[in-house]
Design a protein around this nucleic acid. Sequence first.
DNA 1: CGGCGTTTTGAGAGAGCTCAACATCGGTGG
DNA 2: CCACCGATGTTGAGCTCTCTCAAAACGCCG
Lengths: 203, 203
Amino acid sequence: MKPSTAAPAEWLPPNIEARQHSLARGEILFRKDDPTAGLYQVKQGQVRLSRVDHTGREVVLHAACAGGLIAEASLFAQVYQCDAVAMTDATVRLYPKDALLAELRQNPEALAGFAAGLAHELMALRARLELRNIRSARERVETYLALNTGADGRTIALRGTAKALAAELGLTHEALYRTLSTLQAEGIIARTKDAIILKMPSV
Amino acid sequence: MKPSTAAPAEWLPPNIEARQHSLARGEILFRKDDPTAGLYQVKQGQVRLSRVDHTGREVVLHAACAGGLIAEASLFAQVYQCDAVAMTDATVRLYPKDALLAELRQNPEALAGFAAGLAHELMALRARLELRNIRSARERVETYLALNTGADGRTIALRGTAKALAAELGLTHEALYRTLSTLQAEGIIARTKDAIILKMPSV
DNA sequence: CGGCGTTTTGAGAGAGCTCAACATCGGTGG
DNA sequence: CCACCGATGTTGAGCTCTCTCAAAACGCCG
């Protein structure tokens, strides 16, 4: 979904020694069942959490861009439950699990920020589930667009490829392309290389 | 999905004056856009969180049974984002938002428990999203069954009606009935009034 | 017994998936 | 500079599967 620019996570304790990693586009940060090293914060680029189901289909669980966190939940687990892949060249900062847990135990302020972040992610994920419940490709795309407009209420920035967007929406890329073509033909949207503009703001 | 028996939430501060409510089956605890009163813990019965999308379709976001929590995330919001409905006769306990927030600020132990609960729910919700990504009704049901077996690895207790299960799975009730019939005819499952038994444990 | 909701089965149609072919773009190396 | 190559983007046609609409049997409760 919308890469979470939302949670800047200023609560992250600055005193923890956090190692920075550089990732090339397509590089894997961790895989499902890897032992959990800790929490990552994305400094640049975009990183996506996904799983692969038994048919080989990819399910995008989360997309974090600069400022966003990855694998919060795994602080409480022994192994990661998703794959994390860099969608663009990216840099991430690792907050080691033990150090972070210790810090959170001593710093209620940080802990509260952490909890709030989790809560917001939970809400976002529920919105996500609701979106997935829409069967019609057209309505799903329209709803997504309506929910993801930028500040002007009309522009949706495209991060990454349209194919990736299809995966986020749970559609095949063909279905997405066709839907966008139709919407464009009907004058409901306009497209540029890296954005979609709603002609009718906030339907 | 599986009503979260998982998080007993012992961290809930016992000293907070928590009012108990009794709900009849079908009764509404709160609705989307109601101002948030606080957090509820289910003492008996089952309560379901859902939304209704613009086509009138119901999306089940969460199903909590005894011990489970409801509306954790809304501690950080002004209004509820879902409807909460009792699926069975139920009793719930309300932990008022302000009192609970104040308590969490002073009691890191409780806050940590709260955060851990949120994290686990996040993981559960992600598993849920993965399930929803399975297109085939049969595979979705098989996956659900495999993930929700009881202690013996073969029995799935049915809470509530099969129709309700269909809603949780994101299927029409007809599709679910047909799928179950097929599985039964193929000898993959057996059915009793309130349970499904896998003939082939843990496929 | 009568009514209501759940369970069950049937038939038809629509919508997205699958497979397939082709265009386009960006990078690589001769 | 151009040919090549892979990945993305695009369009076409058929098919499968679930949804939808319909109807009937069943169980429960007043």
